[in-house]
Design a protein around this nucleic acid. Sequence first.
DNA 1: TTCCCTGCAAAGCATTTGCATCAAA
DNA 2: TTTGATGCAAATGCTTTGCAGGGAA
Lengths: 154, 154
Amino acid sequence: MARLTSAEGEVLLDEFRRYLRDHGQPVTRPRDRVARVVLRSDEHLSVEQIHQQLVQQGEAVGLATIYRTLELLEKSGLVRAHDFGQGFRRFEPNPGQGSHYHLICLRCGRVEEFQHERLERMLPIIADEHGYEAERHRLELYGTCRDCRRRAFG
Amino acid sequence: MARLTSAEGEVLLDEFRRYLRDHGQPVTRPRDRVARVVLRSDEHLSVEQIHQQLVQQGEAVGLATIYRTLELLEKSGLVRAHDFGQGFRRFEPNPGQGSHYHLICLRCGRVEEFQHERLERMLPIIADEHGYEAERHRLELYGTCRDCRRRAFG
DNA sequence: TTCCCTGCAAAGCATTTGCATCAAA
DNA sequence: TTTGATGCAAATGCTTTGCAGGGAA
């Protein structure tokens, strides 16, 4: 599911630094570390996973700071939060203008992404038909992934 | 957004009673009251709203029992839970086989439903294309409803 | 020195669980 | 008497907030 190269993550990290500066917020080491982990990741990380990665890097950051930095990252538009009904949120780098959707395996919890241009064109039209001015949307398909089916049946 | 007539709610309530009996579970008054509120509603109720309605009816039921009854209602397939990112879940009578989708107004929080046959046919196919055996899906469109736009602009 | 970010600990919330009580068979 | 549903209160888990301490300008 590799979406971001390390170089792309670096670009996003720079954008975050710029966002902070433009908003009179200092670019601190803990913020930078949290942002780096999230923006470089090609997965949907939970706060716990972010924290663990930082600990492993010897760059432990308090949970409160992780949450506060994620709030900044969301406000900057560089990160999006998701709730896949697992009791906690997951965070991923925002893919910019193009939307993408999620496939969630109900057996192993894996989360994959896919894009779908036709859907993306349809959804704002559907919203409009119902009197809504669309702002964003969310589509999740829940099921059993190939690996889990293989594991179960053969 | 009226979807259920009171009579339809009554049918669902009977189905729930039958489900309980078939599963060796007693049909008690608190369960019946909770089920009645949810199954008769044409809205997406929060636990707090369910509780309030019961209090107003002079039929107060403990929160724990409400949660436990909702679990039974979900297992019976008669009720579905949703998390619209508001920090708590909402519950609605399950519309049976046909899926429906949600429009959520980001200003006033109103939740509307819509159906879309073409989408409904597309989604399992998309899941299949990615190796997933689709079980269920969720589509939510977030935006500004007609009323809120009118309110904002004149 | 001043400002405010950080991190610990405590608080908040929705939800779940433990347990004594009580109703029904 | 036995079973197990109920409801209070406590516990849980994620997230937010309060506040003392510390680093940077």
